[in-house]
Structure formats: C-alpha cells, structure tokens
Computed example of a mutant assay.
Amino acid sequence: MMNSSVSPSERLLNLVIALRNTTGRMTRRDIANKVAGYSPHASPAAFERMFERDKELLRDLGIPLVTDDALHPEDVGYRIDHDQYALGDVQLSAQEFAVLGVAAGLWRHSGVEQLSSRALTKLRAGYDGPQEVEFLTGVYLSLRDVTDAFEPVIVALSRRCAVRCDYRSAHSGVTRRRVIEPWRLVLRESHWYVIGRDQDAGEPRVFKLARMVGKVVPVGGQGSVTIPENVDTDALMGQSESQVNDRLVLAVLPGKALRLTASMRKDGQLRSDGRIVWVGTWDGRESVSEEIAALGPDVLVLEPAQLRDHVVSRLQAATVLAGETDNSKERHDG
C-alpha cells in the first residue's frame, strides 16, 4: 500500500529497483501492488497518470525501459534491459570521489539515504587511487533552506518546463501567483535560489525557494523552456563584476579540503608542518569561514586577516559550546 510520505523521486527509485531486480517482467498490477509509492487502491485513471509520468522520466534519464506487448492490455509487461543498463568499470579520481560524497550528502535527510550511502561505499570498495579519502564523509552541502519547492524545481529543470507557484515578495510581503521558467538552481549563503524568466515580467528574475508558498507545480510540455547558454549568475544575484576580491591564502594538509581548493592554485611552498599553500580569492562570503571552521585543523587561514578572524571566532564559539577551555586561536595560529 502506498505510503503518503513517499516522494516522487523516491517512488521513481523504487520503480527502478523493482524493474531491475524482477526475474521476468512486471505488469501494471504488479507495480501497483509491489512498488512503494503506488497504491493498489488508486483509481485506474490516477495510476495511469502517475505511471505514464514515471515512464517518461525514466526514459528521459536514459534508463532502457522495455515494454513487452501482450494480447490483453492488463498483461503488458515492463522490464529494464540488463545489458544496456549495466555500468562498465568506473575509474574515478580522488577529486571525483569528493564530488560524489558531497552529492550523496544531499540525500542524508531523505528516505533513500541508506541507498546513496551504500552506493558510495561500493564505489569506494573498488577505489584504487590515493588513500586519503576521509574527506568524503566530512563535507556536505547545507540543506537548511530546502522546502517542498526544491524537488518540483529540479524536475522542471530536467524537463525544461516552467513552474507555477505562489511567491511572497521580500519587500512588500504580498503573495501572488508566478509562472517561472527556471534556468539555474543556485546555493548562496545556505539559501537556495532559482534564476529564470518571470513570464509576467518577461525578464530574468531571482526567486528564493523559501518564499515559494503552497504547492509548486511543473507546467508546460517537456522542452517548452529554452535555457540560455550563457547565464550571468553573479550579475543576476546582485554581485558586481567589479567587486574587489581579497587575496586568499590557505595552508592545507595534503589530500584535504579538495572542494575548497578546487578553484585555487598551489603556491609551490611546502611548510615545515607538511601543509601545502594554496592561493585564491575571497569575495567576502561568510559561508567560506563556516566551511573552513568545519574542516578544523586541516586548514589554516594565512590571508586575509578578516577571514582569519571570522574562522577563529567560530572556533572559539564551538569551543565554548563544547565546554572546553583551551584557546582555539592559539591552535589555529599553527
């Protein structure tokens, strides 16, 4: 029987698992009775609408869904082609494993957390590269601002269609209906935003997901939205291209903080404590100090002083909360 808490993405994953592991094929009746997220008590019309949407999504994702015809419509079966679905040998670098670890973290509060963790564990079991992969479990994207709008926006982006929602203005507090053609989903300062074209205004706009109230519904046919090739995310988010960035210098233990240093360059210096010096820029975002503080002794801030002070303040606050008495600033001075 269907669990009302099963999300569409989880139902889709359940369907893939069921079709992948069936010894033969599954009829519509089998799917309604055995796949969590469907209901054997739903009306035939309701089940058909749901199943047709799921079939379309599976094929959009490149999953080889095969239909076995039969004389009677109720006997038509479905299965996944094992040969086409099989994944070849996966050769991933340490950096790619880091990205997978962050991606798996997105599911840690959902019903498929164990499945994503198990998949990551299997990939790590076959990993034959450098052994410094502890970072896979230490960095997570913040999902504190995720609302029910997150999933339908993701669906609309993948289908290239619009979304309809009621949106509360940050300035007036007034809520009104909007139809948005999503182009990008952006995470800034622990908040999620969708950048896209407001159909009423006829211009690009930025919408905060937390201000979408009520039900967010994908609308329009697949491919009805044309996403521009070049979207100036920073400009639309209100960041000036002429903003002066501070020089950022970090001392990082080998194999650590790979996501943080991905856009930086090595300075060529190797400190006496074995740390590697990385050089980049800091645009003033407070979330950077939060990320560095979370990495603890793996990362030291050498420049700028302002960011260093922010990190030290966070470490001192964490020390107080933990009931410790040691001086976190002295530890960070390294």
Rank of each mutant, 00 (worst) to 15 (best):
Q131F: 00
C161A: 06
Y85H: 12
P130I: 02
H109C: 01
L136I: 15
P130F: 01
Q91M: 06
R160E: 07
L136H: 06
R118T: 09
L92D: 03
A125L: 11
D69C: 01
S116M: 14
H82M: 01
G129C: 01
S117F: 02
A104E: 11
E113C: 08
A119I: 01
R159K: 14
R79P: 08
A94M: 04
G111E: 02
D60M: 12
I154E: 11
I154F: 05
A94N: 08
L120C: 07
Q84D: 10
T67Y: 05
H72I: 02
E113Y: 03
G62T: 03
E74G: 11
L65I: 04
G138P: 01
L115F: 11
G129Y: 02
Q84G: 05
V66T: 12
T67Q: 15
Y78E: 14
L71C: 05
I63H: 01
V99M: 13
E113Q: 13
A86S: 13
R144D: 15
G101S: 08
A156M: 06
I154M: 14
D68H: 08
R59Q: 13
L92T: 02
Y127V: 04
G129F: 00
E132G: 03
R124I: 07
V139F: 15
V139L: 10
L115H: 12
Q91P: 00
L157I: 04
S158H: 10
T67R: 15
L143A: 06
Y140M: 07
P64T: 05
S142N: 15
R59C: 00
I63E: 00
G77W: 03
L92Q: 07
I80R: 09
V155R: 14
A149E: 12
H72V: 06
L100I: 01
R160N: 11
I154S: 09
G129I: 03
A119M: 13
A104N: 01
S93Q: 10
D145H: 06
W107F: 14
G77P: 14
L65W: 04
A94S: 15
V112C: 12
R124A: 10
G111L: 00
T67C: 12
R79F: 05
A98E: 04
R59D: 01
D128L: 07
V139W: 13
R79N: 07
G138M: 11
W107Q: 10
G77I: 03
E96P: 09
G111C: 05
Y78I: 00
L115E: 12
Q114P: 00
D83F: 01
H109V: 03
G126W: 00
E96W: 07
A104W: 01
D148M: 06
T147Y: 04
H72K: 12
A86V: 08
I154T: 11
L87W: 02
V76G: 10
V146H: 04
G105K: 00
R144I: 05
G88W: 03
R160L: 03
L157E: 02
L61W: 05
H82D: 12
T147I: 03
A149I: 06
L136A: 06
